[in-house]
Design a binder for these strands. Structure first.
Lengths: 261, 261
DNA sequence: TAAATTTTGTCAAGCGAATGTAAAAGATTG
DNA sequence: CAATCTTTTACATTCGCTTGACAAAATTTA
């Protein structure tokens, strides 16, 4: 059984295509690449990974990778890629499962699946799995690249979700996971940061503990709702001037918590 | 062949977790749970059914069950559950068939499948079967519970459209439960807000205390009618310019109260 | 009209549930 | 192993809802 694929070599037209080489995908002309578009490749064939990495990096993307499903899911959730290229057939966890779980936790993160011809393609882009596009192996790198760009264009119209949020004298950088108060770094654990990030991206909205658990913790390990409260305490200790009189993360008695910028 | 699964025991945190225990799934603020959310469990293992029943009932759901496919399909169609948990492997009729027929007749009824790992998961959530989610055995009850809640939340979004009522210089947002007077937020407890919302949606109408209790308090906990009066006091303190001379919520002696925009 | 009766306004406990918080226990990482 | 992060547990505290009491107002009755 030959699972080996035609491993893509370097691009054929190294010099030619200047316009694309710049930042990540297009539409970033004014501000010079503050943040490059980050692609996560989840694929168990090292040669395939290497080939894709070459090509994507050549095109100006930042590339991170994982070699099996569980690792891929983890990186997707912790390293904030802008798009995931996901092989269907992989050890440890099927790409289908990864895709589904990913879409449950980060619905907006675009996913492109790599499937073998004859695999059940309709399922892949089906409703629940929610992949944004797919490419059947063996594929040309050009095709994959084109689809990646198309999906990115479609998914994030001109400007994508902000990388740096600001409120009061805080600066929260979802790219490198740094939080600064008046320029000075404040340390957050990963859960704390994830929770904070979710609050920030839903300002003014009252978020129930259940919803926070869904969004930040996911479904597999679903802790006690009081766990949320504990983390709130920690956030407040780091964010609030006076943690006993919160002004940033408010409690809505009987409902949950609310972030107010 | 060991089809036995880890049968879920009672919840670990009997006392602690209050917020989740309440009625069905969340988002019932206005009229407190008149009807509990009903879950149908279709599963042939009695021990599994018992375990799940325990847990779901503990969380405030109503549980009905069926022990094979045909019975499950019948109950699903006749007993109006809000969600179905459906085992794939069952006597008489496969869960896949049940799901398919169910979705044909009640497309909006959410279904979560219980599958063994390695079963054709992609089929399950695929287009034609149309299950809303799945959990692979052996699963933790917490995960199933989390997915149930998530599906219910997803299926019945808490009326996404922000409905804003205005009167005088007030602005009442039933989406995020905010009340503003001239732009400034005024805090309302959940009961107070529910009561206000009911008044607002029945302007000019004289509402008896009994009717208010029915609508706002629901039938389960039916307090003294004087409780209404107390809440009226609170509303007036927050709404009226001069609470002793109400102009927004008027008393109709012998009948009840009346909201005048 | 005055008195009697009913209805409503209002307030201050009391109670149970929700939350704040610290510390123990468990899990993870290096 | 220690060090750190996460989750659970336990207890204190706060909060909102309800109730009962009494005063004030409205209505009815005499």
């Amino acid at each position: 059984m030959n699972r080996k694929q035609e491993v893509p070599g370097r691009p054929r037209d190294p010099a030619a295509d200047g316009s694309r080489a710049a930042g990540g995908h297009g539409s970033e002309t004014a501000m010079s690449a503050i943040k490059r578009t980050r692609i996560l490749i989840v694929e168990d064939e090292p040669a395939m990974v290497a080939g894709l990495r070459d090509n994507f990096e050549y095109e100006g993307y930042e590339v991170i990778s994982a070699h099996d499903g569980t690792a891929g899911l983890e990186r997707a959730l912790t390293d904030y890629p802008d798009l995931v290229v996901l092989d269907v057939m992989m050890p440890r966890m099927s790409g289908l499962d990864v895709c589904k779980q990913l879409k449950a936790k980060r619905p907006s993160l675009p996913v492109i699946m790599l499937t073998a011809r004859g695999q059940e393609i309709d399922k892949v882009v089906g409703l629940e799995l929610g992949a944004d596009d797919y490419v059947t192996k063996p594929f040309s790198v050009r095709e994959l690249m084109a689809r990646v760009k198309a999906v990115l264009r479609r998914v994030s119209p001109p400007s994508r979700a902000p990388v740096v949020y600001r409120f009061n004298d805080f600066e929260v950088n979802t790219h490198n996971h740094e939080v600064r108060r008046a320029g000075k770094i404040i340390e957050f654990s990963s859960k704390e940061f994830a929770l904070l990030a979710y609050f920030i991206s839903h300002p003014g909205e009252t978020l129930s503990r259940d919803r926070l658990l869904d969004a930040v913790w996911g479904f597999e390990n679903y802790p006690n709702t009081r766990t949320v409260d504990t983390h709130i305490v920690h956030l407040r200790q780091k964010l609030e001037v006076n943690p006993e009189e919160p002004r940033i993360i408010l409690t809505v008695h009987g409902s949950g918590y609310k972030f107010v910028g």
